[in-house]
Each structure stands twice: as C-alpha cells, then as structure tokens.
C-alpha cells in the first residue's frame, strides 16, 4: 500500500479522537480519545519514517509513547484524586476555573 493510505488513515483517526474529546463528558473517556489522537500521530510518524527510509521517525514514535504513558499516569492520578474527593466525574461540572 502506498504511504498515503496510512497518512489518510492517520488523519481520520486524529479527527475521530478530536471529535470524541468534544463530545464526551467523562474524564476517562476523554483521556482515551486523547490516546487515539496520540496513536494517530504515531502512525503518521512511522509511515513517514518508512517513506523517508531511516528510522528516526520510529525513535520519535517511541519517545511519544513514553510521553503518552507519563501523561496517562498523571491524568489518571488526577481522576483518582477527583474521585477520592467525592466530586462528580464530569468535565462539565468541574468548572471552578470559570472567569
């Protein structure tokens, strides 16, 4: 398959993930959609790495994975903390930063 198929797939997944963030209200699901977006990015990176012919894109993708893992850890920690304080797990209710 030509590389452009992979790229188009990647952009579709990215758009799906973005839409998911906008639509869902549970923080866990929002984080999951965020994962989808990150993975779409990874797919694009690896595809381009194949297109160019060196492996730097793949290394980049690994580092992205590391970062995603860290972000998930912190995000889930936040969610656990929110849950522990008996606040509703609903992004629309947690709006104290309202100006």
């Amino acid at each position: 398959m030509n590389i452009e198929w992979y790229i188009v797939l990647s952009s579709l997944l990215f758009a799906l993930g973005a839409m998911g963030i906008l639509v869902r209200r549970s923080p866990i699901v929002i984080l999951l959609c965020l994962e989808i977006m990150l993975n779409a990015g990874n797919l694009a990176l690896v595809a381009f790495s194949r297109m160019v012919g060196n492996q730097q894109g793949q290394v980049f993708a690994i580092v992205v994975m590391v970062v995603a893992a860290c972000e998930v850890v912190v995000g889930l920690g936040l969610i656990v903390a929110i849950f522990r304080r008996k606040l509703p797990l609903d992004v629309d209710s947690l709006r104290e930063l309202r100006g």
Partner: peptide, 17 residues
C-alpha cells in the same frame, strides 16, 4: 471577554480545534 472563560473544558477544546 469574561464570557469566554466559562470553565467548560470541552468548550475550550472546541475553540482550540
């Protein structure tokens, strides 16, 4: 301008996208 600061994370995301 304060109207934009609704506190809703999703609307921030919407504006971002």
């Amino acid at each position: 301008v304060r109207v934009v600061q609704s506190g809703f994370v999703r609307s921030y995301a919407l504006l971002l996208i």
